[in-house]
Computed example of a mutant assay.
Amino acid sequence: MAGNLGDNVRKYRRVVGLSQEEPAHRAGLGLSTVAKLEQGGTVRIETLHMIARALDVETSDLMVSAGREPIVESDFHSLQVMELRKVLTPPKGFSAPVPADDEVPNLAALRHVIVDFERSYFADDYEEISHRLPDLMRDVNTAVRHYESGPERTHALEARITAMRMAGNYLTQTREYDLAYHALSQSIDDAQEISSDLDIASGVMWLCWMMLRQGRLKETLTLAAETADHIEPNKISTASIDHLSVWGWRSPPTRDAHGTQANSWPPPPCRPTTRLHRSPRSAAT
């Protein structure tokens, strides 16, 4: 542990560009204390805490067996992912803090924000997405917390379904698969609360895509087939375009004459259906 402490202290000190003297001075310690620690020596926990504060990190960061890579200001993606992680994986305990809602959520304005956000996503404007996504996630969570029943709650859940689905898509693209799973699972849970089969299936569509990126082909095929069976239209001639779009993507192809599964399935997901704007284009990609 002592060697790890020294390595972690040295690493964090160098990240912020400090000499050994500077954290020692900030912590009110002698230079020999920091030098001894970096060379593999030991210090009391309160001394370690003082050094951690001088380096602007948590004491636990200095104590882990393999210190996590420090996040520097230039690492914008890591900083934004950390904000998303805070939203998607909040602390839970006997009395987990709930953020205060200062204003009544404006659902109409929130819907416009999500539509605008979708344009950025499907234009592959990931820089804009990474800037705005954490705040959007907080806003939809606030709306769901605020409206406990009635049509307003349904609208709030619809907004969160779309926002979480887009977050899951973005996080899959950036290979943050654990967070993508949290977002897509929340989207599916919300869709189940309002009994929206198409929104459930759309969430499953993107979950399958994430699982494929992880190499989980067998599980993906099973989930896709089960979902396609569940949402198969009674009559194709009367089914909506959105229904056909989601069902068609979820349906695995039949095997060829040699019994071989087509290699081209599943295709990259098409634009997900959403209650915020429905048009024939959603089924054309």
Results as ranks from 00 to 15, higher is better:
S74E: 14
V87G: 02
V64W: 02
R68M: 09
E83W: 04
M63H: 03
M63T: 13
K86E: 11
V57A: 07
E69M: 12
I71D: 10
T59M: 07
V64G: 03
P90V: 03
V81Y: 00
S78D: 15
S78L: 11
E69W: 10
S74F: 06
E73W: 08
G67S: 12
Q80C: 09
G93V: 11
M63P: 01
F94W: 06
G67F: 08
D75V: 10
K92T: 07
G67V: 10
I71C: 10
I71E: 13
L62T: 00
P90I: 01
P70Q: 03
M82W: 09
S78C: 12
T59G: 00
T89G: 02
A96N: 04
Q80H: 10
S74I: 08
E83G: 07
S74M: 13
E73H: 15
V64E: 13
P90D: 00
K92F: 04
M63A: 10
E83M: 15
F94C: 13
K92L: 13
Q80W: 04
K86C: 03
V87N: 10
G93C: 04
F94V: 06
T59L: 11
G93P: 05
T89N: 12
S78M: 12
F94Y: 14
A96F: 05
E58L: 07
E69Y: 13
K86L: 06
D75K: 12
D61P: 01
E58S: 12
F76C: 09
P91V: 11
E69T: 14
D61I: 05
L84R: 02
L88I: 13
R85P: 02
E69Q: 15
R68T: 04
I71G: 08
G93I: 09
V98H: 00
A66Y: 11
S95K: 03
V98L: 04
R85V: 01
K86T: 12
S60E: 07
V98G: 00
H77R: 10
L62K: 03
I71F: 08
S65F: 03
V64I: 05
T89Q: 02
G93W: 15
S95I: 14
D61Q: 11
V57Q: 05
F94I: 06
V57M: 01
V72L: 08
D75Q: 15
V57L: 03
E73K: 15
V81K: 06
M63K: 08
A96Q: 12
F94A: 08
D61F: 07
G67N: 06
H77P: 07
P97F: 02
P90K: 05
H77V: 15
S65I: 09
V81F: 13
V64A: 14
E73A: 15
G93Y: 09
E73I: 11
T89Y: 05
F94P: 06
P97I: 08
F94R: 08
V64P: 04
S74H: 06
A66F: 09
E69N: 14
S74P: 02
L84N: 10
